[in-house]
Design a protein around this nucleic acid. Structure first.
Lengths: 336, 336
DNA sequence: TATCTCTGGTGAACGGGTTCAGTGAACCGC
DNA sequence: GCGGTTCACTGAACCCGTTCACCAGAGATA
């Protein structure tokens, strides 16, 4: 197909202006040379249609202008929204994002992280499946890391946007306990095979503190998978009176399962979500969910990652707290 | 922060094996040199931890391995899903995607398209706001283009995945007309200021053919915006008895507006969506919507764009047809 | 034996910027 | 009038692969 004619290079501009390549390079970036030379160069560049080749620039300067974004699972509507917003914010800082997701698989997560390192991204943003994995330390030595969600266990990061999941879990469980629930199903993307992942830890600790029984089940965010997982929980002979879902996407699955089983929400089953999605307000009843200020989180993340990519020395940490957005999907359990 | 020690380069491997750089370069790609030399080089590379620098490779070879993905609006849930799936599919072909969205703004669309060209992507995939814009011809000369949705007007593309929007519109309008609707509101992201955009054309043509009145209103995909647009339509004194929304996301806004105004769906208002989203099945009533085989569309697109990026000569065209997924959000209009 | 064709490999020229060390001129103070 | 700065700019090395032109030696052919 295309493969067009030769492109205009910096040599062409140098020749056209009678300056050295170096002078043109500096002028294009507003460095070193005098104002009038800058102006002269810019005019010539515009006339010739010159635009620096980002590949050559990356090779010479060692900075690609790319940021890697590695999320746990883009099946989740909230994660989808954040990567989209983050990509837009980074573009505003003249950076392109490479967005990847590990589909909740820690092994894949490692492969992808290393691949981004190989790709020479200037920085990486992570909402990792497994913040405790040992390879993060190694990755962090090669590229500045900004973490969103739970902090990494053993790696020196360039920035952290911690949403306080402990607070989120507390908020959720206290709400359900206050309504009178004593057995709560928890549907979470965290795999129970590695019990030390943060989400689980918070849940177990809070459940113990509050003196309630929890049954933790793994669920993926996709609607069909989440529905199946919820079916498993609700089909149990000693069914919990409430389910706390670690994403609104999973909560959607709980709604679907409840409908399939003829259970009324919230009369027969309370459902609680996480990461309020707009569409969850349209369900009947609207979903009660744990809400974060997504806009602020994305903005803070973009700031940190831009700083990190530019090699900012100091490490920044931002903590966000959640609030409970009441819908109508939770109620006291039925006597029975 | 990081900035690690010098990386292993091809020179190091050449030195370690006693071969020339060229031989190593060939060997790493399985070209030219003998089997045993390839093996020797690979072993040395693995030992030293050598991995070719993609930036240098891109500069030398002229191919970056990047694909630009430029979508009309990632506020839309369907578009979100497709970019995520497309990114994953491209990764399987060893390519990274740079995903951008123009937010429905044709001017922005042009800027972003040119920026991707400057970035030296090997190919671009588009679901454009304005397929008739003249700059596409120019862009198509610089980089192979694959179009998803409606075909470009005046540009030579390397591939097309056409969903037959004409069929989709026909399906939708015929369904509503068969139920007895004679005045249909249409909520579409296409801006009415440029009446010649494909979506509009289909709608007007079909409406005329079927002898029904349509009122076309612009709506964005975001829930709040879509709700506001639907309010405008439904607040009108001569309110349509049905609304056809050009995305499920917009249809969600119609549900919200109907609820705000105390209108029952489908008794007082029929709502029809587009691009079936799983979550739409959870609404009450489940949304009736025009369904595409998204998986097949994404797979076909990935194939075409990979071929295009590799400079495949022949132009491929894939056409997809929609089907109607009945939910329960449409019914005959009330006598009145 | 002389010539030709492969095979497997080498050397060096790219690709297109950035950046560092250095240079000539103008300007400074005394 | 002279050493010391500063300013504006130059030359060349460098980033790290890819690829093209070329070559030595082995084996085939005449």
């Amino acid at each position: 197909m295309p493969r067009p004619a030769r492109r205009v290079t910096i040599r062409d501009v140098a020749e056209a202006t009678g300056l050295s390549q170096a002078a043109v390079s500096y002028a294009m970036r507003g460095l070193q040379v005098s104002e009038e030379t800058q102006e002269r160069v810019r005019r010539a560049a515009a006339e010739l249609g010159y635009e620096a080749n980002p590949v050559a620039r990356a090779l010479a300067s060692g900075r690609t202008g790319m940021v890697g974004v590695l999320w746990a699972s883009l099946e989740d509507l909230w994660q989808q929204e954040t990567v989209v917003a983050l990509g837009a914010a980074l573009l505003g800082d003249d950076r392109f994002a490479i967005v990847l997701d590990s589909g909740g698989d820690p092994g894949h997560e490692e492969r992808l992280a290393r691949r981004l390192v190989d790709q020479r991204v200037d920085a990486m943003v992570l909402a990792p499946v497994d913040p405790a994995a040992p390879f993060w330390a190694e990755v962090a030595e090669q590229v500045p890391l900004v973490v969103v969600g739970d902090a990494l266990a053993g790696a020196r990061t360039a920035g952290e946007v911690v949403f306080d999941n402990r607070s989120g879990v507390t908020l959720a469980l206290e709400h359900l306990v206050a309504l009178g629930h004593r057995h709560i199903g928890v549907l979470t993307p965290t795999r129970p095979s590695t019990p030390d992942r943060p989400g689980d830890v918070h849940v177990r600790a809070e459940a113990e503190r509050l003196g309630v029984r929890v049954t933790i089940t793994t669920a993926r965010h996709g609607l069909d998978d989440a529905t199946a997982a919820a079916h498993d929980v609700l089909a149990s002979p000693r069914r919990p009176t409430a389910v706390f879902c670690f994403s609104d996407s999973i909560a959607h699955g709980a709604y679907a399962a409840a409908r399939d089983l003829g259970l009324d929400v919230p009369r027969d089953l309370s459902v609680l979500g996480y990461d309020a999605r707009p569409v969850s307000r349209l369900l009947s009843p609207p979903l009660t969910t744990v809400d974060w200020d997504t806009t602020a989180i994305v903005a803070a993340t973009a700031r940190l990652v831009t700083a990190a990519a530019e090699g900012a020395p100091r490490r920044r940490r931002v903590v966000r707290r959640p609030s409970l957005l009441e819908g109508g999907s939770t109620a006291p359990p039925r006597r029975g």
